[in-house]
Structures are given as structure tokens and as C-alpha cells.
Design a protein around this nucleic acid. Structure first.
Length: 376
RNA sequence: GGGUAGUUGGCGGAGUGGUCAAUCGCAGCUGACUGUAAAUCAGCCGACUUCGGUCUUCGGGGGUUCGAAUCCCUCACUGCCCA
């Protein structure tokens, strides 16, 4: 149950209790797919003010294995994270590991059938079969605080016909996940939340129907999936409009996998509470750093002018002799201690320190963005 | 002094008569990245260009040939071996 603190049209701020931790919404989850935010220590995450991190069922199942993590006392204990964790179900890997609509099914290491999904481990070719029940079982072993149902994330473009079939499968899987969860999830304060995932491609009728039917099933929260899979931007805002109106006020809403700062801001305005995205860490590693243009950002300013920030590519030659920090107004470790010229140098010589500083800086940008969106 | 192997674009290193402005790697420049198979991937990387081409390149010089980075002569330099 989401305790709403403040409403502003569709946008809201609130408090969500996850495993005994009170997290402020809307929030952004740094991604720790394999049990670590790449190049970042838990101490770093804490000083950045991250409230919750995301782990991945599929990757942790393969290694080190959910049973091992259960023995360790759960993923949070295992990785020394003193906070809540959301686990993705593995549904996205059906998409990202190569399944592409009907035509390529069975290729690229993923095979989708009614019962579940067969994956090949890209590293050793070993085959794994994940059913909705298996996904929940793994997530419970990981000690997740927010368990996601297994879904199918169709690609873009995707026909209405395929999107409907895919959505129906996602709905059947959601029911199976829910049933299994109700049987196996611990009761009481340790009971995690179970989130459903709204699919339906870029089609209004499907998105609304999917949302309605999932709401009828009464989950603890609702995610919007299958967005930012290659479709033009306008679809995102349409989908948010269609879906959010179908969702209950008192349940958290999670926009999966997004996004760019302006997308997150727009989604908060549209009523979304939760986000995760690889952009700050991945793009940081690749040299793209986020810089505020607006010195004293507020939600109003951000929504009014999408140029509230810019990105720089620190590898560019023009930073070779730029001895100023990435962002004069940024309080992160990278900006407080190092110049663009030094970071440029670190990246060019492939010094691992760069990966850490870039990740810290970009995560700091994202977490500040969320703070601004919550507090203004 | 004698013998031998070599000298290719910023570097390393293919190519051994035409399809070579010259494989490939590195370095360099630029771009992409949205529930992480991603410290990854893509493009460019002799000069000029109206992007169709044009011009000058494979140690220097001179030949052979319709045609040479590729064959011959010569000079220079480098590595190795013998004295």
C-alpha cells in the first residue's frame, strides 16, 4: 500500500514500506543485475542516497544460484545492502536475449512456450527453463522485497494480433505467478510485494484491457513494461496516459526500464512512482555524463524546459585540457575532487577508476533528479 | 670485411606483377546506448572532392613491363650470423 503524501494532479509523492524500510516515492533504483551495481560499492550507494536497488532473477539464478543466496541470508545480506530490493522476473531477458516476435522464435537462445521460457546461458550454452512459478520461487529465495511476475516483453514494431497474444500469455503467467506466490510467500512483515506488469504494445485497447484485468486480480503494485523497446517517443506518453488512469490510486506504479531524465520527469507527472534504468551507469561507463543546466531545478522548471540538463561525452578531444569539474554545482565525489581533463584521461587510458567516478556522478544526477521531483 | 634477413600509411603487421589507396590489430576522431550477454557497439581514419570520382603513396634513385608495394640494378639504413 502506498501512503500518498501529496498529490498534484496525477503526480504524487508518497511513502512505501518495503521490508521494514520506508522509501520515498517517486524513486529511482540503481541496477544491480548480478548483485552489484557495476563498479560501485555499497558504501558508494549509501552515500549517494540510493533507497532501493534492483536485482535480476535470471542472472542470479545462473550464478551464483538462488539457493546459495538464500543460504547467505538473501540477496541484500549477501551483497551487504541495508535496504530493500526489487527483483526483475527474467521476463525482459526473453526480449533482450534475442526473441524477436514470431519470426525468430527459437533462435538466439530463447524459446517461448505456454509453460515458460527456455534460455541458453550466453556464456556456456547451457539450457535453463524458467516458468512463472520458477521465477517466483527464485525471487523468494533471493529475499526480494518487490517480486515481479514473469511477463513477455514484445518488441517494437509488433502487430496488434501478436501484441494481443503476447498480452494474453502475460496475463495467464501473471495468474500463475500470483497463485504460486500466495502459496509460497512468507506471511507477516517478511512478505514481499507482488507486482504485475501491464503489456499490450502500443495499442490503446490492449494496454487498457491488460491494466483492467490485472487490477481485477488485485496485485500489490503495477508495472508498465514493454516500453522503450524501440518505439517512437510519443508512444511512451500515450501509454502512460492510457494505463495510469486504469490503475488504483493506493498502489505503487512502476515504469520498467526507463529512462532519460525528461522521460522520468514526464512519467512522474503522469503518476508513476518507481523507475529503474541502466542509462546512468552504462552511459557513464561509456563516457556520457549528465550535467545540470538549471542551477535550482524544480519540477515545474523541469517540465517546462526539457533542456534542464545536457550530456557531455567526456572522451571528446575538447575536454583534454578542461580543468573544471563536470558540473560546478554537483556535490558528487567526481565533481568535488576531479577535473574533466583528468576524467578524460582516465577514460582514454581505460583506468577502472573512471568507471566508478562516472557511475557515481550519473547516479548522483539521477538521484538528485528524483529528489527534486519529490520535493518540489 | 663476408654472409644473410629485412625496410609498407602514427605504431605493429598482411600483401609478393593487374581485382591495392593497399587485409587486420592498436592508437586517433565521432556517434549510439532506456526492466544490463554492454569498461560495449557502430562509423570514419593518405590528400582533394560538385561524393561520381580525381591525385600523390609501400626506404632513395634507376630499370623491365601495356601495367610494379610486388621483378631487376644500385645506394642508404636496420637486425642476425661469421671473421
Amino acid at each position: 500500500m502506498l501512503k500518498i503524501v501529496k498529490n498534484n494532479k496525477k503526480a504524487r509523492t508518497g511513502v512505501l514500506n518495503l521490508g521494514g524500510f520506508e522509501v520515498q516515492t517517486p524513486f529511482f533504483m540503481p541496477i544491480a543485475t548480478k548483485g552489484a551495481v557495476k563498479n560501485i560499492s555499497i558504501e558508494d550507494l549509501q552515500s549517494l542516497g540510493a533507497q532501493i536497488v534492483l536485482g535480476n532473477t535470471y542472472h542470479l539464478w545462473l550464478r551464483p544460484g538462488d539457493e546459495l543466496i538464500k543460504q547467505a541470508g538473501g540477496l541484500a545480506e549477501f551483497m551487504n545492502w541495508n535496504g530493500p530490493i526489487l527483483t526483475d522476473s527474467g521476463g525482459f531477458q526473453v526480449f533482450s536475449l534475442g526473441a524477436r516476435a514470431g519470426k525468430n522464435f527459437g533462435k538466439n537462445g530463447v524459446k517461448l512456450i505456454e509453460e515458460g521460457v527456455e534460455f541458453s546461458d550466453p556464456l556456456d550454452g547451457k539450457k535453463y527453463f524458467m516458468s512463472p512459478e520458477k521465477s517466483i520461487e527464485i525471487q523468494l529465495n533471493l529475499g526480494s522485497n518487490v517480486v515481479m511476475v514473469l511477463d513477455e516483453c514484445p518488441p517494437f514494431p509488433c502487430s496488434h494480433d501478436y501484441a494481443r497474444k503476447s498480452m494474453e500469455l502475460t496475463l495467464r503467467w501473471a495468474a500463475r505467478c500470483q497463485k504460486y506466490f500466495q502459496q509460497k510467500a512468507p506471511e507477516g512483515s517478511k512478505r514481499p510485494l507482488l507486482f504485475a506488469i501491464v503489456q499490450g504494445g502500443v495499442y490503446e485497447d490492449l494496454r487498457k484491457e491488460c491494466a483492467r484485468r490485472l487490477v481485477e486480480m488485485n496485485f500489490d503494485g503495477y508495472a508498465i513494461g514493454g516500453v522503450a523497446v524501440g518505439e517512437p517517443r510519443k508512444h511512451l506518453y500515450e501509454i502512460l496516459d492510457w494505463v495510469v488512469d486504469e490503475l488504483p490510486q493506493d498502489k505503487p506504479r512502476y515504469l520498467m526500464g526507463l529512462g532519460k531524465p525528461e522521460e522520468i520527469a514526464a512519467a512522474v507527472e503522469a503518476g508513476i512512482d518507481m523507475f529503474d534504468c541502466v542509462i546512468p551507469t552504462r552511459e557513464g561507463r561509456h563516457g556520457r555524463l549528465f550535467v545540470w543546466n538549471e542551477e535550482n531545478p524544480t519540477m515545474t522548471k523541469i517540465l517546462a524546459d526539457k533542456n534542464f540538463y545536457q550530456t557531455i561525452n567526456i572522451v571528446n578531444k575538447k575536454f583534454e585540457k578542461d580543468f573544471s569539474p563536470i558540473d560546478l554545482n554537483c556535490d558528487c565525489e567526481a565533481c568535488q575532487n576531479y577535473s574533466k581533463a583528468y576524467l578524460h584521461h582516465l577514460l582514454k587510458i581505460k583506468e577502472p577508476l573512471f568507471l566508478r567516478l562516472a557511475s557515481i556522478h550519473n547516479l548522483n544526477f539521477y538521484l538528485k533528479l528524483m529528489r527534486v521531483l519529490r520535493e518540489s
